[in-house]
Simulated scan of single mutants.
Amino acid sequence: MSGSLITSLLDAQWTIGDTSILWREIIGNGFGIASAVGGMRRVIWAWPVGIIGNILLFTVFLGGVFHTPQDLDLYGQAGRQVMFLIVSSYGWWQWHRAKTAGLREPAQADPSRSILSEPADTYEAVQPHWASARERVFMAVVAVVGTCGFAWLFSALGSWGPWSDAWIFTGSLLATLGMARGWTEFWLIWIAVDLVGVPLLFSAGYYPSALLYLIYAVFVIWGFVVWLKVQRETQARARVEGPPTAADTTGQRTVRTAQRH
């Protein structure tokens, strides 16, 4: 009974004219938007919420395998859901580690949304910052090599739109890694992914995903502005207050250790 109920929920469709859309495509993308909002606000729940959406969308983009209304296989789109699961687990751990380290958020941060636990006088949290020159070179190399390599692989697998699919996969990997590392550039990478993803999804008939990609673009631009503002405020405060001395840092760690015990 429960099995048939789950199957019915997974197969539920919304029909608009001659077009059938899976509800799990809409719901999965809804979780994705919630994750993007959480990422912008730098709250830990952004990661598990996004993972739920990844699991739902994995089945959607293998339309030929799971016999969805689109009946097309986008291996890059499906593969990136698996990649999201892996990288999001890393991001979840990375942000949780910052939270338990007892580091300080900006003064205006809402404590209920903070990824941190105890206040301290350091700036070592998961704070927005530009990637270093070496990290940018790394991202550029991965973008080129990854797109070419995955385009070949997806072509061999019979993916629909392999080159676009390959960039979407590679760019999503870089953007998710950048979010975990706190690189402000990750928002710009998402914009580049959306520019390719929207036309691909519309052409393939994944209309909810295409429309929600457009909504993502709004959140991405908004998120970039928010992170950039936080980054500048943090840097300005650091210039005024100056970095903590070695003695201060040692004392703060001793106090935090004593408080935990």
Rank of each mutant, 00 (worst) to 15 (best):
R113V: 03
E25T: 07
G50Q: 03
I115T: 06
V65Y: 12
P48S: 05
I16P: 11
A109F: 03
A125Y: 11
G28T: 05
D121P: 14
R42N: 01
G38E: 00
A120N: 15
L85E: 12
D73E: 08
L62N: 11
S117N: 14
R42E: 01
P106Q: 09
I52R: 12
K99R: 15
Q127N: 13
R24Q: 13
R24K: 12
G28D: 04
A34K: 08
R97A: 13
T15S: 13
S112D: 14
G53W: 02
A36H: 01
I26A: 09
A101R: 14
R41I: 02
Y90W: 12
M40Y: 00
Q81P: 15
F58D: 07
V49M: 11
L103N: 02
Y123T: 13
D71V: 05
S35D: 09
F61W: 14
V43I: 12
G38A: 03
S114F: 02
I16Y: 10
Q70H: 08
T122Y: 04
T68N: 07
P128V: 00
D73A: 10
R41Y: 11
V87I: 15
I55M: 12
N29A: 07
Q13T: 14
T122C: 09
N54K: 04
D18F: 03
P48C: 04
G102W: 00
V126H: 12
S20F: 04
D11L: 05
L9W: 10
E105N: 14
S8Y: 09
S88A: 13
P111H: 05
R24F: 06
A78R: 03
G17E: 09
M83I: 10
I16H: 14
L103Y: 05
S89A: 13
G91C: 01
F58H: 06
G28R: 03
A34L: 15
A34Y: 07
Q108A: 15
H67A: 15
W93I: 13
D73S: 15
W92I: 02
W14P: 06
D18P: 08
Y75N: 11
G28C: 06
E118R: 15
N54D: 14
V37P: 00
I115F: 06
S89H: 03
G39L: 01
G76R: 00
T59H: 12
G91N: 00
W93K: 14
F66Q: 10
V37H: 00
I16C: 09
G50R: 01
G30A: 06
R97N: 15
S117C: 04
S20R: 13
V43C: 11
W45T: 08
W14K: 08
Q94W: 10
A107V: 11
F66L: 04
Q77D: 13
A107D: 15
L74K: 06
N29R: 05
W95V: 06
W47V: 01
G38D: 00
T19W: 04
G39W: 00
V60E: 06
S8M: 07
A109N: 06
I16G: 08
T15H: 10
P111M: 05
M83G: 15
V65I: 10
